[in-house]
C-alpha cells in the first residue's frame, strides 16, 4: 500500500498556493493534514498527479475570533480549534463534533477546512457547517468568494470549489444567546465511523419555547443534510418528549438514507429518528453544550 508517484509543491504563501492551483488545478489536490486524503492515496484509490501542500503556509493556520463568527484558516488543526477558548465558549457544537473526529493523533494533524473540503458523508464537520450555515471562503488567484455551506456540499466527496480554488477558511457563526447544542452519533463501534449522526443547535426564548432550531443529519450515502422541515416544525414549540419524538420521525422521513454492509437503510432511518429525538431531549433538559456570552 504505497501511493502512486506525484509532483509535489510546497508554497510558503497563500499566493503561492493559488498560483499552483491556477497552473495545475484539474490535476492537483491540496494536502493539508492529509488524514482523509493520504489513506486514499496509499490505497491508490486516488492518484493525483500534483500535490500542493499548504503545510508550510503558516499564514493559513489562524483561528480568529471575528465579529460575526469564528474563522478557521485552511491550516487550522482540529485539535487547536477544539481547544481554542473562543471556540469552546462560543461555538460549542463545533467543539462537540470535533471530539468525535478520528483519534487525538488524527486531530493533531487534521484540519477543519480539510475535513470540510473532503465532504465525506459520514464526517462530522460538514454536518456542523450545514446546521450552522457556516460561510465557506473560497480563494483563487482571481479572487475570493463566500460560498454558503448549503451550496458548498454537492454530494459524497464532492464540493463546489472550482479546480483552481481552495477552501481558504471557514466562518462558523457564534451560537446565539440562549442556545444549546448537541452533537451525537452512533456506530457499530463506540468510536469511529458512525452509522448516523446529528448536529443540533436550539435557541430558546425566555418562555422556554424553541425560537430557532438548526439541525443537520448524516447517515446516508450522500453528504449530510439540513432538516429544514423539522426546524420549521420545531420553531415556537415546547420541546417535550412528544415533540422530540415527532421531530425525530419527521426528520427520518426526510433524509436520504442508504443501506450498506454496516447497516441497512431501515436501520439508518430509524436511528436518525432516535438520535434527533435524543439530541432534542438533551438540549431541552439543559444537559447539552451551552454557549456563553463574553
Amino acid at each position: 500500500m504505497k501511493p502512486a508517484p506525484f509532483e509535489f509543491r510546497a508554497p510558503v504563501s497563500l499566493d503561492g498556493v493559488l498560483e499552483e492551483m491556477r497552473e495545475h488545478g484539474e490535476a492537483a489536490r491540496i494536502l493539508a493534514g492529509g488524514q482523509s486524503l493520504v489513506p486514499l492515496m496509499n490505497l491508490r484509490m486516488l492518484q493525483p498527479s500534483v500535490l500542493v501542500s499548504i503545510n508550510h503556509c503558516k499564514e493559513l493556520s489562524y483561528i480568529r475570533a471575528e465579529e460575526d463568527g469564528l474563522v478557521c484558516g485552511a491550516l487550522a488543526r482540529q485539535w487547536d480549534v477544539e481547544h481554542d477558548q473562543v471556540a469552546i465558549q462560543r461555538c460549542p457544537l463545533l467543539v462537540q463534533a470535533l471530539h468525535h473526529v478520528g483519534a487525538r493523533s488524527n486531530r493533531n494533524r487534521g484540519t477543519v477546512c480539510g475535513s470540510l473540503a473532503h465532504a465525506d458523508p459520514l464526517a462530522e464537520l460538514p454536518a456542523v457547517a450545514l446546521a450552522l450555515d457556516a460561510d465557506m471562503i473560497a480563494a483563487s488567484s482571481t479572487g475570493r468568494r463566500v460560498v454558503p455551506a448549503r451550496e458548498f456540499f454537492v454530494g459524497a466527496l464532492e464540493n463546489s470549489l472550482r479546480p483552481d480554488e481552495i477552501l481558504e477558511a471557514v466562518r462558523f457563526p457564534y451560537a446565539p444567546t440562549g442556545s444549546r447544542s448537541c452533537f451525537i452519533e452512533l456506530g457499530n463501534r463506540n468510536h469511529g465511523f458512525a452509522i448516523a449522526g446529528v448536529a443540533l443547535e436550539v435557541t430558546f426564548g425566555e418562555d422556554g419555547r424553541c425560537r430557532r432550531a438548526r439541525l443537520a443529519v448524516m447517515g446516508g450515502e450522500n453528504i449530510a443534510k439540513r432538516a429544514s422541515d423539522t426546524e420549521v416544525a420545531l420553531a415556537g414549540s415546547i420541546i417535550d418528549e412528544a415533540a422530540a419524538r415527532e421531530a425525530g420521525r419527521l426528520t427520518a422521513s426526510l433524509v436520504d438514507v442508504a443501506g450498506d454492509f454496516h447497516a441497512d437503510a431501515a436501520y439508518r432511518r430509524e436511528l436518525v429518528a432516535v438520535l434527533v429525538e435524543r439530541a432534542l431531549i438533551q438540549v431541552a433538559s439543559g444537559a447539552a453544550g451551552r454557549a456563553r456570552s463574553i
Binding site: 488524514q35 489513506p39 478520528g102
Partner: peptide, 24 residues
C-alpha cells in the same frame, strides 16, 4: 491511519507516520 502502530510525534504532538509524506 487506523491502527496506530506507526504513531510518532511531529513537532511535539502524536501523529500517524503512515499518513504523512516525509517531504511534506
Amino acid at each position: 491511519g487506523v491502527c496506530g502502530a506507526c504513531t510518532v510525534r511531529i513537532d511535539g504532538r502524536t501523529a500517524r507516520s503512515c499518513l504523512h509524506f516525509a517531504v511534506a
